[in-house]
């Protein structure tokens, strides 16, 4: 292969490091998005034998939002392999023990159950808060967009803006708010 073609090959098969903020996102919805990037299915050069998957770094995994009653009712199964080693852990218990596990299991479940799955999972890094090790953060060059809206909290908006924002109605002055 000539020098020019070699460089073109490096450019086309370059592995991008993406970052994804899991704050207030549904882990199963975001797992579908993340798995596409991990497997390389977001690239038009995709082929299962191509090894074209990208690296995804998930941050704020402690702040994920499960739907409805799932925090109390969803249970994760684990068997140690020994007799009597089956255990069912509820989502909130698992999250307290290890805040990265829920999204990791969600991504594992979203992928196809073939032999490439474990290898592809090694390309996923999950951190429970914003602190990411420097050598990983240096490689990150792109961001994956979230699917759910993260609304800004009222006390995070500056006071002047809140006062100037147009109102449809206002309470009377002698109204007592509980």
């Amino acid at each position: 292969m000539s020098a020019a073609k070699r460089v073109q090959q490096w450019a086309t098969f370059a592995r991008t490091w993406h970052i994804f903020d899991c704050k207030w996102q549904d882990p199963y919805e975001s797992a579908n998005i993340i798995k596409k990037y991990l497997m390389g299915q977001h690239k038009p050069i995709y082929h299962p034998l191509n090894d074209c998957g990208d690296v995804v770094v998930c941050i704020n995994s402690r702040e994920i939002a499960l739907r409805g009653d799932e925090w109390r009712k969803r249970a994760y199964f684990h068997h140690t392999g020994y007799p009597g080693g089956a255990s069912w852990t509820l989502a909130w218990e698992l999250h307290n023990k290890d805040p990265t596990m829920i999204i990791k299991k969600a991504v594992y479940r979203a992928m196809k159950g073939n032999l490439q799955r474990r290898h592809t999972m090694q390309r996923l890094f999950i951190y429970h808060e914003e602190n990411v090790p420097e050598d990983i953060m240096k490689n990150v060059s792109s961001q994956i967009r979230q699917s759910r809206l993260v609304p800004t909290r009222l006390d995070h908006i500056p006071e002047e803006e809140v006062k100037q924002y147009p109102k449809v109605m206002d309470y009377p002055k002698d109204y007592v708010l509980k």
Partner: peptide, 16 residues
């Protein structure tokens, strides 16, 4: 713009 952006940022992370 991603080349000079400070990641993670809400500009590139939020749903547009």
């Amino acid at each position: 713009e991603l080349n000079t952006a400070e990641l993670p940022s809400s500009k590139f992370g939020a749903n547009n």
